[in-house]
Design a protein around this nucleic acid. Structure first.
Length: 497
RNA sequence: CGGGGCGUAGCGUAGCCCGGUUAUCGCGCCUGCUUUGGGAGCAGGAGGUCGCAAGUUCGAAUCUUGCCGCCCCGACCA
């Protein structure tokens, strides 16, 4: 482990890449565009999964699993969806290898094994799932269907970055079917709410809920809802989406049901997902030049105990084990690092790099004074307190850190969200680098005339896109910053990942 | 797919322009001793198809050609 990270102000994306690797979250694999998620990184993902899964179950959903491969004919069925993903699909064309006729030890796809129908590796599962739902649904009594799946998907991206954009990634995709438009819309909004709550309470990440413009909408949806977060470099990151599919997939796959009046109707659908990209959001929202900063609610290790070993450590280690047990009984995930292969200083740096929220250090001197040193990762502050209060102190410290991290991110977002009313200022804001040396742009609230042409022009000229039409913004009369045409509400612009 | 850059030990690199003993240095790794309250010190040690292939040459990490891979910038994207 080499010392130190590239500071954010020197090179923000270098900082990100190094952090992901040095904190043992993930690494590049020998497969182009695909990553290996390492145990520590996967542990964080598992914490996310567990909590999200709980929230899905609490809102009535069940998990299921659908195939990785989608026959091309099925994939084609919903035209817009197919078109939207066509350019990034991996396609299976053969089902067998054979020895190379000339080169010993080499294999080639057996030309004899060409598939009659090619298989698309799922970039998303609407096609297989709606094709299946067709068989599950006859009557209004079969509805709603509330299913989620945890799976991997493949999107052949041209440029990839660990967690933010990889050719294969892990996610969950919810797919629901409903008898009415209202019910499907309510589901779409409910799941957006679930995502927002998860982001704010668990990831300590404030998010803006909104609706995508037609241009940014999911291929095959009537409406796409999203949550958008602001990263420390001033770029926006979409952290979750929830789609109202209307009857598009029902029509494409002929999914009808008999309603109470004995009339045949198409089913209404939704789909919603979050991915391992959340890991990228977590990293870029909170971490600093010393490494990861993890919110306690998602930290695989919430508290680490480091004994300062010297001479006879029997009493010291006894005390450490006692503290370990007491914290563990409170349901805190705690690690006692009593290895003598590293010095304490090394361990401090290491656990800081890994974002462990609370560090507890105990040495001979503490035993004599009946004290203990407690350090918090988010503020980099440490205190020496009485050993008698240690457990209680740590217990209240974890929620305080969780809140502290959220508050900091929220304050950052407020500082970096501006209302802008003319295009000149709009362009200037995007180019200003803040005193910290690495924040540029941020969220810009501005009026837009509602046309795709204007949106595209602004994107071409500034690289900023409309992240969403925020749900919670009050309507406000104004004029489009680009065309001067009338506008009824502000939308949220930013440069985005 | 266009434009730029890079492949030398697990990682980061020097050497290449101007070919010539045993391929440089740092981190990491191993052993031993001393250490341990913010990334320990000293001593010793292991580790290399110089991306691959062909060519030029008495001789190639170094020059030439071809190929492969990776990174950065653009178009596409959770």
């Amino acid at each position: 482990m080499s010392k130190g990270l590239t500071p954010r102000r020197e090179n923000y994306s270098e900082w990100y890449n190094e952090l992901v690797k040095k904190a043992d979250l993930a690494e590049n694999s020998s497969v182009r565009g695909c990553m290996v998620i390492k145990p520590y990184g996967y542990a964080i993902w598992e914490k996310m999964q567990q909590q999200l899964d709980r929230m899905f179950k609490d809102t009535g959903h069940s998990n299921a699993y659908f195939p990785l491969f989608i026959p091309k004919s099925l994939f084609e069925a919903e035209e817009k969806n197919a078109e939207g993903f066509a350019k990034e699909c991996a396609v299976v064309t053969h089902y067998r290898l054979k020895t190379h006729p000339e080169q010993k030890g080499k294999l080639i796809a057996d030309p004899e094994s060409k598939l009659e129908e090619e298989l698309v590796v799922r970039p998303t599962s609407e096609a297989v799932i709606w094709n299946t739902y067709k068989n599950w649904i006859q009557s209004y009594r079969d509805l709603p269907i509330l299913v989620n799946q945890w799976a991997n998907v493949v999107r052949w991206e041209m440029r990839t970055r660990l967690f933010l954009r990889t050719a294969e990634f892990l996610w969950q995709e919810g797919h629901t079917a409903h008898a009415t438009r209202e019910e499907a819309l309510a589901e779409t909004e409910q799941m957006l709410q679930v995502y927002a709550e998860f982001a704010e309470k668990y990831m300590a990440l404030p998010v803006i809920k909104g609706i995508k413009t037609p241009n940014e909408r999911f291929a095959g949806a009537d409406e796409t809802y999203c949550i958008e977060a602001l990263m420390q470099d001033g770029k926006a990151l979409q952290t979750g989406t929830s789609h109202f599919l209307g009857q598009n997939f029902a029509k494409a796959f002929d999914v009808k049901f008999l309603n109470k009046n004995n009339q045949l109707e198409y089913v209404w659908g939704t789909s919603w997902g979050v991915s391992t990209r959340l890991m990228g959001a977590l990293i870029m929202a909170h971490s600093d030049d010393n490494g990861l900063v993890l919110p306690p609610n998602l930290a695989p290790i919430q508290v680490v105990i480091i004994p300062i070993l010297k001479g006879d450590n029997t009493k010291l280690l006894e005390k450490c084990h006692e503290i370990f047990q007491q914290l563990k009984q409170l349901g805190i995930s705690v690690k006692l690092d009593d290895s003598d292969t590293q010095t304490p200083g090394f361990k401090y740096a290491e656990y800081e790099l890994k974002g462990v929220p609370v560090r507890v250090a105990l040495g001979q001197r503490d035993l004599e004074n009946n004290t203990i040193e407690i350090a918090r990762r988010d503020t980099k502050t440490k205190e020496i307190i009485s050993l008698d209060n240690a457990i209680e102190y740590v217990k209240q410290l974890l929620p305080a850190i969780q809140q502290g991290i959220y508050n900091k991110a929220l304050a950052f977002r407020k500082e970096n969200t501006v209302k802008v009313d003319n295009y000149k200022e709009f362009k200037e804001i995007l180019e200003i680098t803040k005193p910290n040396g690495y924040t540029q742009g941020g969220f810009i609230e501005a009026h837009w005339d509602g046309t795709t042409e204007t949106e595209e022009k602004i994107k071409e000229e500034t690289k900023a896109t409309i992240r969403c039409i925020p749900l919670e913004y009050e309507p406000e009369e104004g004029t489009c910053i680009y065309t001067g045409k009338p506008s009824k509400r502000r939308v949220l612009f930013a440069r985005a990942y």
